[in-house]
Design a protein around this nucleic acid. Structure first.
Lengths: 370, 370
DNA sequence: AACGGGTTTGAGAACGTTCTCATCTATTTG
DNA sequence: CAAATAGATGAGAACGTTCTCAAACCCGTT
């Protein structure tokens, strides 16, 4: 039993009631703001509560009311600015509605995610926002959904699960970015997916056929957009230019080094998130190359630094904060309202053209020798 | 009462016990992993639980065990990479010890922080990590501390509160950075504090006398370090060069524009966090100036982009992740162990020299005209 | 056959609230 | 003046676990 420094155990409602000379029920009403209480009684109780340093026990309250005013959020990694911004959108919206947020990082690991979902539901969160790590196994999400616990998916769609989803049109966004590079004259455009190596097989299919059915939907759908832009321009899809080497900055840098070391290196690169783009720029510096002279670059997400890199980075901007906010709004709606059909909300993206895309240099010439 | 789609109410322990043909107590032991249960009984109960889709109610459990296995974290803004990284350190450490994390953004606002602390304690978190917004009013923190709830302060010290603190030696770090600029030949060094305008008065004192006693201790202590470096070099402390214009990127950009528009503009600037440094670089671009030719810059925190800006940014690097991790470790220790004396943990910083500091250009000449 | 010590089990209290329902008072209405 | 109505209060159940304590059981020993 928790005790203060002086040895008193923390005061409870009966203690307050006793001190105020009323019943527990009345004390509860006076402090909880429900039922009806005489103003004078209320003051008496409030005074007693303040005097004792009473602090309501939310656990007991939640146990009986059946709601915790808390939502659970499962993201890959809060250090990634995409998730940090999305979480801010979620948290602000939740907070305005009187909810707190419990956060778990999954690190894109399915086991972590499963565990997180279990723990959060045991803690009886009123709803869940999840950015699913792997669409291939969603049994835990199905369980949650079937148990009637409000669930909204963030950024990534999962087939055969009737939950609300908030995201962007990944296919169109990737296609637009790729088309922009092609329009600048590029014919060898690399794709940095940041995907897990376990996806390599699916992404090394000739011509990326069927890649849109790929497990981690964001990567799959964007890869399909990339592919379709190339095909629409009559360009070949070269599996060698598709990198699936992990989602850390160092992975992206390594992938860039590999790509630039190819006999026929790419002249442009599309990085599927801002951290990967950062890795590309870093690798260019390490090689003493410059952008866009030696390599044109487009990244996903308008990172805070995109304006101050040299050159400023051309990006596909997503309304990240709004994605989070909208996810939370859908969740709140589902928590209050009845069981309407699953909503699929697609928010607009925009290609922000800055200085990192130029015409290709003389091709067929190893940049390492220039 | 929560019900599944099929109309069943969510199963409870008595339901499982009934299905398994044992008492609630035995079912609880079998699933909770405490007490002793015959292996065969355990299997029977587990089967029944799985069959019914039983999910333990953590609220009831916490109500009786007296612990929620949850810690509360109150930070200024999770979108700020400093806090995101620190939170990651906290969360990883907490998670490894079996704790979840509830996060609240205070936006450096005292009322928000007060509220957050109240709500979190009502939710009966087992401990709190707080980055206090304002050291001038800490009554809510004192209440928490006096109630015997484990509390660790992150990054900022608060006078007259015997709570554990984790941070860096702000005075030394700022002094070292300032001295580095002076050693490069600069005599007019500006300071971008990112402080709240309410601190302006305290920071506009001639020679920054007594600034170390300033409310938001990080700003105050760093300003004192800056001051002492100047004084040690026999240089004057010019209040005009001390900016207190808010902690957003745009604030920093505006402040930079103001400073560069002065009759005698600074030739170097020390920005007290990475977002502020970003604002400085952005303002330089907007003016068509280059760093370090027109202005030398040092920032706090080794941001992810510090390597790819042009030029790469010289920074005071803090072990941010470790600050968070250590804060959580202290909290865990205090949650388990007895009431030992308050610990003050100071982690080392390092000045990482890159390209953003050079010799001052011809002074006494408005850069705008150059 | 009785005993002793350990393991396994069950009944019921406990945690600290909110909720239900009945009672009591004050006030208005017919 | 009786009756109806609304407001304020209290007693006790309920939420779903874990904890306490006593009883039942098992097995080997005397």
């Amino acid at each position: 039993m928790p005790r203060t420094a002086e040895g008193r155990s923390t005061p409870t409602l009966p203690d307050v009631a006793r001190a105020a000379g009323v019943s527990t029920a009345t004390a509860a009403r006076a402090l909880g703001g429900y039922g009806s209480v005489r103003p004078e009684t209320r003051r008496k109780v409030q005074a007693a509560a303040a005097d004792l340093g009473y602090r309501a026990n939310g656990l007991a309250r939640s146990l009986i009311t059946g709601s915790t005013d808390t939502i659970g959020v499962v993201l890959a990694d809060i250090e990634n600015s995409f998730f940090a911004r999305a979480l801010r959108g979620i948290a602000d919206t939740a907070h305005a509605a009187g909810f707190e947020v419990v956060l778990v990082n999954s690190d894109e690991d399915l086991d972590n995610e499963r565990n997180a979902v279990r723990v959060l539901t045991e803690k009886r969160v009123d709803g869940l926002v999840v950015c699913p790590a792997d669409a291939r196994d969603i049994s835990h999400l199905r369980t949650v959904h079937d148990a009637g616990i409000p669930l909204v998916l963030l950024d990534r769609r999962v087939p055969r699960l009737a939950a609300d989803v908030v995201g962007i049109d990944n296919h169109a966004a990737a296609q637009e970015a790729t088309a922009h590079l092609i329009a600048a004259g590029h014919t060898r455009v690399a794709l940095l997916t940041g995907g897990d190596p376990s996806l390599a097989a699916a992404l090394q299919v000739p011509d990326l056929v069927g890649v849109e059915r790929l497990a981690a939907t964001t990567v799959g759908t964007r890869a399909a957009g990339y592919r379709d832009a190339l095909l629409a321009a009559g360009l070949p899809v070269d599996p060698v230019l598709v990198s699936v080497e992990g989602f850390h900055r160092a992975d992206a840098a390594a992938a860039t080094h590999r790509l630039l070391g190819l006999p026929e290196p790419p002249t442009a690169i599309l990085a599927l998130d801002s951290l990967l783009a950062l890795g590309v720029l870093q690798a260019l510096r390490e090689r003493g190359l410059t952008c866009p002279d030696d390599l044109s670059v487009i990244g996903f997400d308008d990172a805070e630094w995109a304006l101050v890199s040299s050159p400023p980075l051309t990006v596909v901007a997503q309304p990240v904060y709004e994605i989070g906010a909208e996810a939370c709004r859908l969740l709140l709606r589902r928590m209050h309202g009845g069981a309407h059909r699953a909503v699929r909300k697609v928010l607009p993206t925009s290609l922000i053209v800055r200085g990192s895309v130029g015409a290709p240099a003389r091709t067929r010439r190893s940049p390492a020798s220039g």
